[in-house]
Amino acid sequence: MRLNCPYCGTRSVNEFVPLGSASPKRPTLAEPIERWIDYVYFRDNIAGEHDEYFYHAMGCRSWLIVTRNTVTHEIIGTKIAREVAA
């Protein structure tokens, strides 16, 4: 499998480290602990398009958000996580 790193171009997936779903957003300190437990432990098991974090460990060291179809394995697109977070 190959991923298109917006900085480095299309590279082998061997250069990347996956982390899992990019959907959960880190709660604030003011939010109840249940929100934090959701954030750290619970993930939806999505059939279809899914945003996932990938770290370009052997490239530019950017964290990417890769949209992947978990049914067809098609890579729909890649974004720079920092730009999405900002």
Binding site: Y53, S62, W63, A81, R82, E83, A85
Partner: peptide, 18 residues
């Protein structure tokens, strides 16, 4: 060493992007 670097990059880029 490698794991911490990756973790710090995650924190920097996703939690502290600005």
């Amino acid at each position: 060493a490698g794991r911490v670097m990756q973790h710090l990059e995650f924190c920097a880029q996703i939690h502290c992007p600005d």
